[in-house]
């Protein structure tokens, strides 16, 4: 475990020193500041725009990180042969994979924290009360990104190119959000075979729509403890399964 921490540290440091992440954060901050000036157009729902941006910008940046960094996380190591250095060190392969995963998770955490703090500052500036539910929503979005990252790592453990993995991740993201519609379709389909097939697809896909509670949060709709418990355990289960599969594939891999 401790060795995973050092791998995570390497991933984290490298991501932070990468200009792309910094420039994305700067872009996000600029958008957030600009939203302050547009706030009057929200007609009575003051602060809605700030809250919306605060809650969605970390996901946007996280998605970009996954598609541009997450897909190359393992691929680059193999392609550029950095893996040789780690493989010759006393570190097991599962520790290596876990470290990679935790490193990017730490990046998500930092990005989210930055936007949370900035958003809360702006809300105070506008004299709008800050609610604990915002933190819950941000927590949910980190979990969503972690699920997506684990899926991406699973794909990248056997996919040929990072571009293909990126496309996979992108499709999975939107398909995961369409999960409730897929379920509805499985109920409505007339053909029995199609019905079963669609139902299987529904169970395989990560149901990311659970993690989109932005609209509930911005409009003070309450979220039950049961839902929170269910969603957290779903995320844990999905991440563990995906990581186990990708580690199993990675263990067999020869570079």
């Amino acid at each position: 475990m401790r060795r995973s921490y050092y791998i995570a540290k390497a991933v984290f440091l490298e991501s932070l020193k990468n200009y792309t992440l910094v420039s994305m954060i700067v872009f996000g901050v600029v958008v957030l500041v600009a939203s302050l000036f547009l706030n009057n157009a929200m007609l009575g729902e003051y602060g809605k725009l700030v809250v919306d941006l605060e809650l969605t910008l970390p996901i946007l940046i996280g998605l970009i990180i996954i598609i541009f960094n997450g897909t190359r996380l393992v691929y680059d190591e193999i392609e550029k042969k950095t893996i040789y250095i780690y493989a010759s060190k006393p570190i097991k392969r599962w520790e290596f994979m876990l470290g990679k995963f935790l490193g990017l998770t730490a990046v998500f955490l930092v990005v989210t924290t930055i936007f949370a703090i900035l958003g809360f500052l702006f809300l105070m500036l506008l004299h709008i009360p800050v609610k604990g539910q915002y933190v819950l929503s941000l927590f949910f979005s980190i979990m969503e990104l972690m699920i997506l990252l684990s899926v991406t790592m699973f794909f990248s453990s056997f996919s040929a190119t990072p571009i293909l993995t990126g496309v996979f991740a992108f499709v999975i993201y939107f398909a995961g959000h369409l999960a409730p519609d897929i379920y509805q379709y499985s109920l409505m389909a007339k053909n029995q075979f199609v019905r079963v097939l669609v139902r299987i697809i529904y169970y395989i896909l990560p149901n990311l729509s659970y993690y989109n509670i932005t609209k509930e949060v911005t409009h003070n709709i309450s979220i039950s403890i049961n839902q929170i418990y269910y969603v957290i355990s779903y995320a844990l289960l999905y991440i563990v399964l995906m990581m186990v599969f990708s580690i199993l594939i990675f263990e067999k891999k020869e570079f």
């Binding site: 440091l13 990468n18 042969k81 950095t82 006393p90």
Partner: peptide, 26 residues
């Protein structure tokens, strides 16, 4: 200790950071 052919390290780290991570693995 192993030095691979045409080694390639993390682009954005400094030498000290990289060595501290590899050292920490031991």
């Amino acid at each position: 200790g192993f030095l691979p052919e045409n080694p390639y390290f993390h682009n954005y780290l400094s030498a000290e950071e990289f060595l501290s991570i590899t050292g920490a693995l031991y």
